[in-house]
Amino acid sequence: MPDSNIQEGAYNYAYLDEQTKRMIRRAILKAVAVPGYQVPFGGREMPLPYGWGTGGIQVTAAIIGQDDTLKVIDQGADDTTNAVSIRRFFAKVADVATTTSTEEATIIQTRHRVPETPLREGQILVFQVPIPEPLRMLEPRETETRTLHALSEYGVMQVSLYESIARHGRIAKTYNYPVMVNGRYIMSPSPIPKFDNPKLDRSPALQLYGAGREKRIYAVPPYTPVKSLDFDDHPFEVESWTECCALCGSRESFLDEMIVDDAGKRMFICSDTDWCERRR
C-alpha cells in the first residue's frame, strides 16, 4: 500500500474504527470463554489481501495500544517480506513500538511458527489462520462441520489418522496438526509445524487465532491443556534433524534447509531468527 494514502488523521488508531474494534473484542471474549470454539465475526476488507494475514491484523488492531511492543514474524523470521509489511503497517497506523525480540514484545503476530523463546504471562500470541476449520478437508460443508463440533462427533478425524497409519505406517500429518483443546473442541493450530504443537500446551501466554477471509476468531486462554491427536500405540512425535544450526549450533530448534550451491549442498539454519541471533 503506497505510503501517500495514509495521511495524518485520515485513519483511526490502528486503522479500524472503534465500533469495529469493539465487535472484534466481543468475538475475542467469546472465544476466550470457550477455548477452541470458532466464533464468527464481521471481518472487514483490510488494505492487505485475504490470505496475507487480515485475520491476524484485525485481532492485533483490536487489542493493540500505545503501551504495547509489537513483534511480527513469518516462517519464524522478522525480515521476511510479509512480516516487514505488516510491521510497517502497524508502525504507521498505530504509532506503536516494534521489536524483533521475543522477550521484549507484548504482542507477537505470527504466520506459521511459534517462537522458540518460551513465552511468559502477559504476552499475547496472535496467529494468522488460513483455514480455521480442522475438519474442512474431511467435510467441505460448513453446515455439517458446525454440527459435528456441536455434538462432539469427531469420529471422522480419528478415521483420517487411522487411514494415515494404514497407508504410511505413521501419522503423516506434519503441519496444521489437529489438537484437542481443553478436552472439548478439536482445533486447527494454524499451519505451524507439528514441532511447535507442544509449545501450545498450557502456555502462560494468551493465544488468539484470526481467520480474516473465513471470518472466524478462536482462542486458547493461558494454561489451557492442548493435546495433539494420536493413538495410544502411535503417540504424537515431533520432527527432528541429524544436523544442528550452522550459525549457532542449536539442536533444539526448528531448522530451515538452505540449498547453497548448484551441486545441491545443504545447510541447516534456525528458522527463528531472533532465537538464533541471541545464541551467537
Binding site: E153, Y154, G155, V156, Q158, D232, D233, H234
Partner: peptide, 11 residues
C-alpha cells in the same frame, strides 16, 4: 469408525 467415534484409541 464406530469404535473410534466412542473413544477407541489403540490403533
Amino acid at each position: 469408525e464406530r469404535l473410534m467415534a466412542v473413544g477407541a484409541r489403540h490403533y
